[in-house]
Design a protein around this nucleic acid. Sequence first.
DNA 1: ACCTCGGTTTGACCCGGATCAATGTGCTTC
DNA 2: GAAGCACATTGATCCGGGTCAAACCGAGGT
Lengths: 218, 218
Amino acid sequence: MLAYTTFQLSQEPRSDSYGRSTVPLPFGPTHPQQTSFHAPGSEIYAQGEKAGTIYQVEFGAVRVYRLLADGRRQISAFYLSGEVFGLEADANHHFFAEAITSTNLRLFPRLKLDDVSQELFSLTLRSLTRAQEHLLVLGRQTAAERVAAFLLDLAERQGGLEQVELPMSRMDIGDYLGLTIETVSRVFSKLKDKGIITLPTMRSAEIKKWKALQAMCE
Amino acid sequence: MLAYTTFQLSQEPRSDSYGRSTVPLPFGPTHPQQTSFHAPGSEIYAQGEKAGTIYQVEFGAVRVYRLLADGRRQISAFYLSGEVFGLEADANHHFFAEAITSTNLRLFPRLKLDDVSQELFSLTLRSLTRAQEHLLVLGRQTAAERVAAFLLDLAERQGGLEQVELPMSRMDIGDYLGLTIETVSRVFSKLKDKGIITLPTMRSAEIKKWKALQAMCE
DNA sequence: ACCTCGGTTTGACCCGGATCAATGTGCTTC
DNA sequence: GAAGCACATTGATCCGGGTCAAACCGAGGT
């Protein structure tokens, strides 16, 4: 029932989409491995902590999640026996990891890659982080919070100017944020009424009150 | 305003979290580059097509999305000038990519990596795919569809047996699926009433009607 | 300038899932 | 076995955002 998909850059499939290897992980042998036991509910790492170690579940179950300021939580993924987690796009963890049940972990220290691999790998990891952060938006934010976060994201990607280009339609925005065009439009109108943004044309926005917009995302 | 985050495995930061490089991509020089122009709305690649090429937006904007059977669409990400997309976890595309506006793309052919990089990179790409597929669940599926997909996912990860262990609490499940514990519980009860599953204990489920469960996810 | 047409905005109403509240159930401890 | 407690289920009500429908642009075309 497990589908072992072939990876384009691999000669042979070796692990499934949860990181559960069918052979020992390739970065094991050269580095002495360490294991650690975690009681139910205990923290494995916290958001903001230094990252680098990769973890493989020997037995037990782990949840990886983020929190909004008001306590709303979005679990990004669960990890079961054999599965691997802990990869982060930069030096620090962006998520919390906790044991759900009694859990034993095998620890793999960070490893070195050549230059080409590095850049590509880095790129992928940051896409992963972005997707995971978008999970939080879709899973736990209101329509207004989603649109505010979207505008700030676009503005940042366009250099942080107050003028933001919106190359995509309202429908595209809705489909990205998990909303209907009507709701997107209503939120835009409300932001305009409050003087937080202006809408000079249908395909652009001007951010007038950055603080207010940022406050809306928690 | 752009935050250039340092990647743990890099000596120096070279691209931001959208894949917009501050220096030429490292896989450019050794391979002759190709570019392609796309009119608004035109397809760049389709779900199921052979993957491998990596794309960088020279100008324009691109949407990458998935569709449910009934036409509901979830856009996974937008890509703007300078940004990179097209990475896939296996030989085929799992998403559709389309130009939003008139768009020019720079194409990079697939590249070879050493063995160690391969496994790790493969792992990361498949995490990325999983996160992106979870976006579809959170953005566009109903409570019943989310729970059904969750049970099937867990069952598959546990070897495809009808008995599924649920190491996590209802609250954990809710926080993963973007639902409340009450809704998760109600959906479980409804599935039980319909004879699709049984709940021998609070922390396990038995799938009785696979077809019905699969049908619920579209 | 006027017409057309797709995309957008606005309004009225509805419904799925959240919230609030009460009850039920399994586990632990004595 | 009874008490205590955390987690889970069930019920009643509410509300955010979806749906349906109408009006409103704005960019081309004539």
